[in-house]
Each structure stands twice: as C-alpha cells, then as structure tokens.
C-alpha cells in the first residue's frame, strides 16, 4: 500500500468518528467502562500477587516472651532458640522498643498508643530470622512449643487467609477481565454494526467501483483504534490518580513489612500502557469484526 493511501485511510477513519456522532460516544463509553473495571482488577490482582510473593519470602518470626519470665530465663530461652535448626539470627526486642515501633507504624492513630507508655501492655520479644523462607513455618511451630513462649507471629500465618483469597481473586479476576473485554468487543461491534447497516449500501457501491476489501476495511481499523484509544483516556487518568493516592496512603502505614504496594513508578505506568493496548485491541477487533459480514458483496 502506498503512503498516500494510508493517509487517506487515516483521514477517512478520523472523519467517521465525527460522522457517526452518538454511536461514537456509545462505543467510547463501552470501552471506558470496561477498561476502568479491568484496570481496577489488574491493580488488585497484581498487588495481591506481589504481597503473596513478599510473604513467601518473609523469614521473620516474632516470638512473644511470657511476662512471668525473669532475665536469666529470657537469656536461656534465647540460647535455646539459637540451638534450633535453620535459625539465621535471634535478636532481642524489649517491650519498650516494641511499643515504639508500634506507635511509629500507626502514624497518627499511633498517638493513642502513647498513653500506654507508663503501663506498657506488650511483652518482650525475640525477633527470629529463618535461614530459608520455606523453613519459617516449621521453625515457628518449633519455637511455639518451647517453655516460656507466649505466642509466635509471622507473616505467612497472618496473611494465610489473604493468600487463600488471592488464589480465588486471581482466577475470578482473570475470568472477569476476559468476560469484560469480550463484552466490550461485542458492544462496540454492535454499535458500529448499526452505523454500518446504514453504510452497507455504501460498502456495496465501493465494491462495485473496484475497491478491495482491504481498502474498505482500513478506515474501519483506524476508526476502531481511535475508539479504543479515546476510550482508554479516562480509565488511565483514573488509574494514575487513584493508584497515586492509594500508594501514598498505604506506604504511610507500614504495619507489616510484607504489605507493600507495587511502586507507582513503574507499575502504574506499565499498567496504563497495558490498558491502552487492551483498549486499542478492543476497538480494532470490534470494528473490524463488524465490517466483515458486509464485505461479502
């Protein structure tokens, strides 16, 4: 195809956007709605996935020590833990340090906890680090059996349920995304089809004048691409602002080290690109599908 013919197809595609008025608005609306949902799902699923990965690599076990234990017994417990297999390090953390961390991690709400400074309800703890991530759970249960251990907390346990949820979220999210994309393609190809019904006579005339199928199809390709790109503007804007605020809000509250959103840059940018690509795909496919039937003249 010659460059000037490509230019002509571009021009025609652009013109069709305006010629079709409300149908264009309807098609863009279909893409926009779909992409907002797709963006939200992708952001959620990918982040849950990331959290799951973080948790799987989390090796810290916080071992709360029975408040009745004396100083010597605490030291003995620490030595006992060190004797266990697969321990990388054991660090003592006093109840005051614990409270301090808690207050800091809670941000503004943490102010309330400062009231406890006189009467700290927390206990001393050992922060145990496992040598290998997959040993964390086993090591934790061994520690829990030791005399003088009140409780053990570790990431995998805390988010086990979250992780379970994540498995389902991944499958459901994916199914929903695929469903949404096809619904949008269907909607677009239908809205375009309505405009084409009126244009089927024109397509017939074009063929009688000697236009090839490709020649007729190209402007529709361009039109679909434009619909897709225009339809992804609002979703991308919503994604970028929404994710920016979410990211800022979450990073101010570091309750657990492993709950960390994927960083705004590059994640939000890459996701925006993906949304743009999905939008273009939906638009082009919907448009080209709808013209297919009328080319068999």
């Amino acid at each position: 195809m010659k460059l000037r013919t490509m230019n002509r197809h571009m021009r025609e595609g652009f013109k069709n956007i305006f010629r079709n008025g409300w149908m264009t608005v309807a098609s863009i609306g279909a893409v926009t709605t779909t992409l907002i949902l797709v963006a939200a799902f992708l952001a959620l699923v990918l982040n849950l996935n990331q959290i799951a990965v973080n948790v799987e690599e989390d090796v810290q076990i916080s071992t709360l020590i029975d408040a009745t234990l004396g100083e010597e017994e605490i030291t003995a417990l620490g030595e006992e833990i060190e004797q266990l297999g697969g321990v990388e390090s054991v660090v003592f953390s006093s109840r005051d340090e614990q409270l301090n961390q808690l207050v800091q991690s809670m941000g503004e709400e943490g102010q309330a906890w400062q009231l406890f400074e006189q009467d700290n309800p927390l206990t001393h703890a050992y922060i145990v680090t496992a040598a290998e991530p997959d040993q964390t759970a086993g090591l934790a249960s061994q520690i829990a059996e030791l005399q003088g251990v009140q409780q053990v907390n570790y990431g995998q346990q805390v988010v086990e349920q979250l992780f379970q949820f994540n498995q389902y979220a991944r499958i459901i999210g994916l199914a929903l995304i695929i469903g949404l994309v096809f619904t949008a393609i269907f909607l677009i190809s239908n809205t375009i089809k309505i405009t084409i019904m009126a244009r089927s006579r024109e397509i017939g005339i074009m063929k009688l004048v000697g236009a090839t199928n490709g020649f007729i199809r190209w402007p529709f390709f361009v039109e679909g691409l434009l619909l897709g790109v225009l339809g992804s503007i609002i979703p991308i804007a919503a994604l970028l602002t929404g994710y920016y605020y979410l990211d800022t809000a979450v990073s101010e509250q570091i309750s657990y080290t492993f709950i960390e959103l994927l960083p705004f840059s590059p994640f939000a940018w890459l996701l925006s690109l993906l949304i743009l690509a999905i939008g273009a795909f939906i638009g082009v496919w919907g448009s080209v599908m709808s013209v297919r039937k009328f080319l068999k003249v």
């Binding site: 010659k2 000037r4 013919t5 010629r19 024109e202 074009m206 004048v209 000697g210 236009a211």
Partner: peptide, 24 residues
C-alpha cells in the same frame, strides 16, 4: 445512480481513483 450520499460530487468521482492509488 448509486452515489455515496455523504460524499461530495468531487469525492464521489475521486473515490474511483483513490481505489487504484492514483496520486492526489
């Protein structure tokens, strides 16, 4: 007649040349 209703007289005639990729 079978003219393309949204195109001008000029564009209708030019269309037959555009399909054979004639120069503008």
């Amino acid at each position: 007649f079978k003219l393309l209703p949204k195109l001008s007289v000029y564009e209708n005639i030019a269309f037959a040349l555009e399909v054979i990729e004639e120069s503008p």
